[in-house]
Write a protein that binds this DNA or RNA. Structure first.
Lengths: 345, 345
DNA sequence: AGGGCTTGCTTTAACGATTAAGCAAACGGA
DNA sequence: TCCGTTTGCTTAATCGTTAAAGCAAGCCCT
């Protein structure tokens, strides 16, 4: 496409020098390479005149670096991840990196595909929001000495760089908040997943009950299959409400589960928070719009995204450095959906 | 990073032939290049053994093609665009293209930046959701003979390839739907924008009123500044409700306006649809979750994204072909927010 | 048998940039 | 004056791939 590009050679010819000199000057290596002051000025001048833009492909081929980061995200249609993507992109650009985003759609095969495509494209490193059953992919990258940072989710068994939420604590806070609001029979809806962040969310919830000396009732925990969210949430909520000790509050461990669950709660004609108090992970416009604004755990998205980029870039500079791990805290944004329980007199 | 890559040379050495032969074989040019059948087989064999992966950088440098598409989106945090991005990515991958996504955040300067970065990265072509005041950017690309397809928004004054919604008709349908539901005083909230798609949405609305012989009242139209959505929507709704002929129905011309508007309507304590019927462009989980599900104009996202990719790829194959324009229809999904007006007796 | 075609491969240049190595001219020191 | 250093530039190799051009051996045809 388009007009012929300006290359070093064009500048060299116009200046009557070799391409080497031009390269030295335009890369600020005039000192080390003993380039004459006047010719350097002339070269710079001509470069501007011709509006020279270096060819990244050639640069990359030579250097083996593409200044490109591969971002593999579990689900781009989730607004949380879409925002993370935007933040990562911005931050990367500030550091002169370009980001190639791929969505694995929570599918291990798609994730493999993406990794291979991006490796082929010679990305310098990865930021990865891992899906289920992708440990081997992470191991593979590790074994090939590819630089990467895990974001939002990590595998405790594999020593890697990562930036994640303190999911245990976030969940614990959510449980405690409801308990302090007078709710006693608190349910949790989570994904049926081996992913550590999900296990931690369950653990935090369970321990918040235990610390308040509330006996956890197995019926209060619904684990939902990723592929069958709708029906399993319905069944789960039904079961929770029909339990010996029916739940009076629900924690949703992700945004998507909350959306689905709230729809069903609407259908059932239940009122939030009188019939059922709600706290959810994630954040979304939908929560503001709900007739009763939803209490949610706010994740430090900016910080998560920025830190991931920082860690990766620092790793790219010095691949030998030991892995760094960052744990961040969520903030509970209390709203009406979890307001102090009305006394039943 | 990582182990040394396998190159054509490695295969050539192992097979005891020149790299040229290897290149011919692995590119399926054995016939034209008269490569011996047995040596071809041997080369292929070795390539598999060594797990050869071609170096895209070198290929691209040589060919001038990167098999990469730049996707510039007006706002990635908008779920509509995030979904479009995903569809474009999938479709591109099917055609062996990689997508680099950039969000211009509705900002012309950022859009310029992105275009330059991506041009420097030698993308083969662009798919662009234009922001306001970016005609000159489109003109520039045109004049440089860069291949691109406009998506969702276009500039009628510039002859380009594009794939957009029939915004006029969509808006007309929305208006007509409300009129048929018995609403007479219908307001529209739109962006204050010169972008053609927005103008068309306004035109469609106005003409739906005219065709129903309803006199359009200027107070019924609120145009909102992109940077000041919240306050201007509030002011606009206040004005519409205080008008001589207060509105009994509202059309939101984008998803984001609807979210903002509905929040305020909630605050005012108005009931949808009894106090105010609603129809909105865009689609989102939030609309399902609202206590009264929102009627919306469903856009053929799949088709939009896929067609854009198709047009672009076909343009890349033959850059000389005349521009093609595609107009798609929205479907009105009627729900409770616009149900037939209860008779006031 | 000698000229031309076919077959099967190699050589070489090129894409655009970087960089080690080389080389001539000018300069400095004793 | 002579040798060694510095200065200022060029040459050439390299990254991995492609493709035009070249070349030797074997074939056919008359």
């Amino acid at each position: 496409m388009s007009k012929k590009k300006v290359s070093l050679k064009d500048i060299a010819e116009k200046a009557g020098v070799s391409t080497a000199l031009v390269s030295y000057v335009l890369n600020g290596k005039e000192k080390e390479s003993r380039v004459g002051v006047d010719i350097a000025a002339k070269i710079r001048q001509i470069a501007i005149e011709l509006n020279y833009k270096p060819n990244y492909l050639a640069k990359s081929l030579r250097s083996g670096k593409t200044q490109t980061i591969g971002l593999i995200i579990a689900d781009i249609s989730n607004p949380f991840f879409a925002n993370i993507a935007r933040i990562v992109e911005d931050e990367a650009k500030k550091n002169d990196y370009t980001v190639i985003i791929g969505s694995s759609d929570e599918d291990a095969d798609k994730s493999w595909d993406l990794i291979n495509v991006l490796l082929n494209r010679q990305v310098d490193g990865f930021i990865i929001v891992s899906s289920e059953n992708t440990e081997e992919q992470i191991q593979y990258l590790s074994s090939r000495n590819v630089s990467f940072v895990l974001l939002d989710r990590h595998f405790p068994a594999i020593p890697t760089d990562y930036v994640v939420l303190n999911n245990y604590h976030a969940s614990y806070i959510a449980g405690t908040h409801l308990i302090e609001g007078g709710y006693r029979n608190i349910g949790l809806i989570a994904y049926r997943s081996q992913l550590f962040h999900m296990q931690e969310r369950i653990r935090g919830y369970v321990e918040s009950l235990r610390d308040a000396e509330i006996t956890f009732h197995p019926d209060w925990l619904t684990e939902v299959d990723f592929g069958r969210i709708e029906p399993e949430i319905r069944a789960g909520i039904d079961r929770m409400l029909a339990a010996d000790q029916p739940v009076d509050a629900l924690i949703f461990s992700t945004y998507r589960l909350a959306i689905s669950g709230l729809k069903y709660i609407n259908e059932l004609g239940l009122t939030v928070p009188d019939d059922l108090a709600i706290v959810s992970f994630g954040q979304a416009e939908a929560f503001d719009l709900y007739y009763c604004p939803i209490t949610y755990l706010q994740q430090p998205m900016e910080a998560l995204g920025k830190t991931a980029v920082e860690l990766l870039i620092s790793k790219l500079k010095d691949p030998e450095q030991p892995p760094r791990q960052v744990l961040m805290e969520a903030t509970l944004i209390a709203r009406n959906s979890s307001k102090v329980k009305a006394l039943v007199t």
